[in-house]
Design a protein around this nucleic acid. Structure first.
Lengths: 278, 278
DNA sequence: CTTGACCTTGACGTAACGTCAACCTGTAGC
DNA sequence: GCTACAGGTTGACGTTACGTCAAGGTCAAG
């Protein structure tokens, strides 16, 4: 059986078969030494389909080759499949999140009559280690002192990351502001007293970047709030601020502040999704 | 802001930033002509995150570049997202199938005490156009005549694909065998009378390849039946046989027959899966 | 003998970077 | 002024699983 016929039966391209041969996955049963023609045994059809099956499960050709070459024990095989299962499950989880975010952007586009907010990003954050100090304060300016206290108590060595803050409650929600100031860390460190070290969890956040003076920060908050009400997401944790770049007196550096609203899909949105999927 | 700082803030590698620059996606705000150093404006952080967001939705860098370069209308943007949504949905569907098949193989490994059946494949078939003739017959041998009738009535031009058959009921299920013989087609053709043309639907099938005489075909059926009872799948349609290679008298060619059992997950397996996912 | 289908090897392209290698720059400490 | 050394540069090659030429050899039919 020549390569063309074999490829037709196996529903693969000639290139694929030549590639499998070269990769040591599925060599032709014999090769005519005069003209180099590859000849396949019809029995190899089963092998070809086996390879395609493993491939479809997400194994790489290298893994498949090893799997076929060294006769694996049942335990090893099980381990391979379990790993594949886990990876697939993870990807499906992530895809579900991606799908939700795309839906959110689609809905934002529907409500375009207000002139949309292309500057609002909807993304996943990574978990990050932080050291924090939480206090109730009267004015936002007091946060500065809190940062300075954290930095004094930690020493310069450990606090290499950016400043950030969690606003557990804001000025318009009561008489006091519940503020938690953070510094990002590279590794967890041990802390005592009022200083806490923990891993700021990953989250889906709606975020905007604010450039320039803090006096106009309110505008960005309003943008985010407007986005939130028109989306099918709801706030699910304290608002975050990250001070990526801070203006320094003297140097002409503009500050860059990111405002993040951690969000989850509202309950009715999830239900709608499940119906659509079914 | 030099490239290293910008990369740290944006949580990307230097290589990535250089690549984005070269790809015209995100060029440094300015480049020192003396030493070639790239300098980024902190404002570009928002652009970088926007790019990463689109990328995470599954857009290619090329698409993102076009999307950012030509200011798209809301309608065009919506179309892009809708397409992404559809692709993601499709992948999630497929992944669900893959996951089920991996689970099936894992379960097969658990029940290894019987010596497993590594020759049983569990795979997806593609839809394929066929012409068919269905009749009730007494003995399997009569199928041969049915094939000959189909081929006579179709003419050689159209029936270029392999022979195959659907067994709606077999000898052990009643006095008559309900047999539908098929020939694969490249394109649909119009047929009259008892000949039907339709697209054999895609399916998840458990299959084995049988080599050699039909007299031992029963063995392969038994293998598949054993696999089926130990799996959490159940038959969901007529058994299929595909005659990939047919022995010809004279030539020393062994025949190759594939037996396919179309299957779906049993109801309890689906429930178990849903619980595990939740 | 020609035609056309089929086969060969070899080379390059894909997407989004990772990972060297070889070399240049800027700053800090002595 | 010299020396580290951290940080920058370009350039090239590797990754996966093939697709897509290009240039040329082989085989069966008419």
């Amino acid at each position: 059986m020549r390569i063309g016929d074999f490829a037709r039966l196996g529903n693969v391209s000639l290139r694929t078969l030549r590639f499998y041969g070269q990769a040591g996955l599925l060599r032709p049963a014999n090769v005519n030494p005069d003209n180099g023609y590859r000849h396949y045994d019809p029995r190899q059809l089963a092998q070809l389909h086996q390879i395609r099956m493993f491939q479809e499960m997400g194994l790489t050709l290298l893994e498949i080759r090893e799997l076929l070459r060294r006769r694996l024990t049942a335990a090893e095989l099980r381990e391979v499949f379990r790993q594949r299962r886990a990876a697939l499950g993870k990807r499906m989880q992530e895809d579900a999140g991606r799908l939700a975010r795309i839906d959110a952007r689609l809905r934002a586009l529907e409500g375009e009559r207000y002139g949309a907010s292309p500057e609002v990003l909807l993304r996943q954050t990574h978990p990050v280690w932080v050291v924090s100090l939480r206090e109730k304060i009267h004015r936002y300016e007091e946060a500065e002192e809190m940062f300075e206290e954290v930095e004094r108590r930690m020493g310069a060595a450990h606090v290499s990351g950016e400043r950030a803050a969690l606003w557990h409650s804001c000025a318009n929600e009561g008489p006091m502001i519940d503020c938690e100031v953070l510094r990002f860390l590279k590794q967890p460190v041990s802390t005592r007293g009022t200083l806490r070290t923990f891993q700021l969890p990953a989250a889906t956040v709606a975020s905007v970047f604010h450039f320039g003076s803090d006096r106009t920060l309110e505008d960005s908050y309003r943008t985010l709030a407007a986005w939130l009400t028109s989306s099918q997401f709801r706030l699910c944790g304290p608002k975050r601020e990250i001070y990526w770049v801070e203006a320094r007196s003297g140097a002409e550096v503009e500050s860059v502040t990111e405002i993040q609203f951690p969000v989850v899909q509202a309950r009715d949105a999830k239900r709608a999704l499940r119906i659509r999927a079914a």
